[in-house]
Design a protein around this nucleic acid. Structure first.
Lengths: 347, 347
DNA sequence: CTGTTAGCGCCTTCAC
DNA sequence: GTGAAGGCGCTAACAG
């Protein structure tokens, strides 16, 4: 394609030295107005844009921050990325994102790729890679983790109180009179899935509700697994009046399973999620869930990185999720075993 | 942070010249086995990774392809990005993505940013920026557009036959006996929204169905607008037995409006979308929609860019979308005006 | 204020 | 096969 025009070209064309052009570009020093004008005109005319690679090399900074995400197309991480994008906006920094797909090996490759690109900082979203690998990265550049605690870097982690989130859900259901509560867990190789399940169990105990192994299922955070586990649950015949899912996506899948069985939400079964994805406001009925402000978390991570880069030592405030009661939860159907559940179950 | 180790360090440590190390790194020439071993050992020990910025500068290529997307968190573009990521996998290239948010100005800034980063190629997803700006970019690097026709670059555009997609929807509804069909259009600053609406109108005419201005609404592709327009439609009292939405997100919003009015889908109203987002498989009921294989489109775009970069002249095959009939469409309720619709409408 | 001089880290001729 | 030298495009002292 056409030859790329360099700062050198501009300098020659404007009859000044390269450094002058550079100074104008970066506002590094004062330049006589007429020279400035001349140079700027040439820049316009030649459509010159500085080569970031070269700037990076000369500056020793790439002006980019690496983002290790897991699945770029997941609604959850998508919103986090949007938040990061927003948080970085206006700064000179730009996010380089790579997906790790929840596979330690791929995550390691992603980190390597980003380090080769000499990112100035790193943001890590979840993942299953060992803490050690992240600590190693953290030795070279400032690192902030979201939704994951990294040993020795806790003060650089934007954490969510998963236990508290689920607890709010259980409390809400208890207040509505539910006792037989089923639970579909997420992929327990992920920290948050474990925390949520444990939080559920703790809350049930605290509130004096029965914790039945037969009502505890294990999904993998996907819609498909939510559907699968929910329909297993229904087929099993063990009665329950509420179904708590470890995330919104599984709740969506579970919703479909209930629909297929002709079970109404919330008349027959109350259903809850976790994350408050944007689309959960539009499920039928709108989903009661735990709000995470994923977007804000991303933004906060970005801002933290920026201040780290600026040499400050920001301190993270742990994020407290909050229950959003919408329409997928309601009072227990009267005689549980005879009414709501079993009646429809046999229809 | 710790000093970054360079190729120079490796060379010294291994007792060879920098060029030798470079050759080993790139397999550019043969090197004596023992030197190779020595160097590789040092690379390991020092944990050396080449600086991509420097390589880029020396090579004149950055090994990155720019991606101009609109909204990184939208499920639609998210899936496209995942496809691009997949398509680029295994190549040396890496995607740099920036969002334009459907604003010409921001899109232009995004393009500038990417050109400054000296991307070797560009993939454009939708957008409202003028063709001219894209042509200008295309003069400097290979460019591929997805879901958008760019004047003079048509053979570099991965296009979707939107008219045909909507036509299939209308035909399907006609076969089910629907005559009074409402339509919610997308943001008509976008080409595809116009094509879909026009396709709808054409198909209605062809099939001899009435085209009522009062049943034509204009949304903006968001869930909120779908809800808004659908509820307006219901409030207006004009009877209809089917509602066609220009995308899945608006269909989701419309679904909620119908739910609020106590209208059943598909018993009272048939509902359709367009795009076949992953989550549309899990709406209640699962949504009849037009499949776009967004993921594959992204992948195809990436592969095209790669072969362009390799010097080939690939040829794009226009993409024909296909109707996916799920459960949100059904036969017309018996006497339309008396039965299904108005009865519920007045409840 | 501004031009000259060195690099930043790597690759690539060019000789040996 | 391998080292030396020059350059990619830009910035940052250093002298004027």
């Amino acid at each position: 394609m056409s030859v790329t025009v360099t700062l050198m070209h501009v300098a020659r064309e404007a009859g000044v030295s390269p450094s002058t052009v550079s100074r104008i570009l970066n506002g590094t020093a004062n330049v006589t107005p007429d020279k400035r004008e001349r140079v700027e005109a040439v820049i316009q005319r030649l459509n010159f844009t500085p080569n970031v690679q070269a700037q990076a090399l000369a500056n020793g900074r790439s002006f980019s921050v690496g983002v290790l995400t897991q699945n770029i197309s997941s609604p959850f991480y998508g919103e986090t990325l949007a938040g990061i994008e927003r948080g970085l906006e206006g700064s000179l920094y730009y996010p380089l994102v790579v997906s790790g797909h929840w596979q330690a090996e791929q995550e390691q490759q992603a980190l390597d790729l980003l380090m080769r690109r000499r990112v100035d900082a790193m943001i890590v979203l979840g993942g299953v890679i060992e803490d050690e690998a992240l600590q190693q990265v953290a030795e070279r550049v400032p690192l902030v983790a979201v939704g994951r605690n990294v040993l020795g870097l806790t003060e650089r982690c934007v954490l969510i109180d998963n236990r508290e989130g689920i607890r709010q859900v259980v409390r809400h259901l208890a207040e509505l009179g539910h006792r037989e509560v089923a639970y579909i867990s997420g992929l327990e190789t992920q920290q948050d899935a474990v925390e949520r399940r444990e939080g559920f169990e703790e809350a049930m105990r605290e509130l004096g509700l029965p914790l039945r192994p037969t009502l505890m299922r294990r999904g993998d955070y996907t819609e498909a697994s939510g559907e699968q586990e929910a329909s297993d649950l229904l087929r099993s015949g063990v009665p329950f009046s509420a179904l708590v899912c470890a995330n919104d996506q599984m709740a969506l899948g579970a919703r479909l399973a209930l629909y297929r069985r002709g079970m109404r939400v919330p008349e027959d079964v109350s259903l809850t999620g976790f994350d408050d994805l944007f689309s959960s406001r539009y499920t039928t009925p709108p989903l009661t869930t735990v709000h995470q402000a994923v977007n804000e978390l991303g933004q906060q991570a970005a801002e933290t990185v920026l201040s780290l880069l600026a040499g400050d030592l920001p301190h993270m405030t742990p994020y407290v999720p909050r229950l959003i009661v919408r329409e997928s939860t309601g009072p227990v159907p009267h005689p549980l075993t005879a009414g709501g559940l079993l009646m429809h179950d046999s229809s």
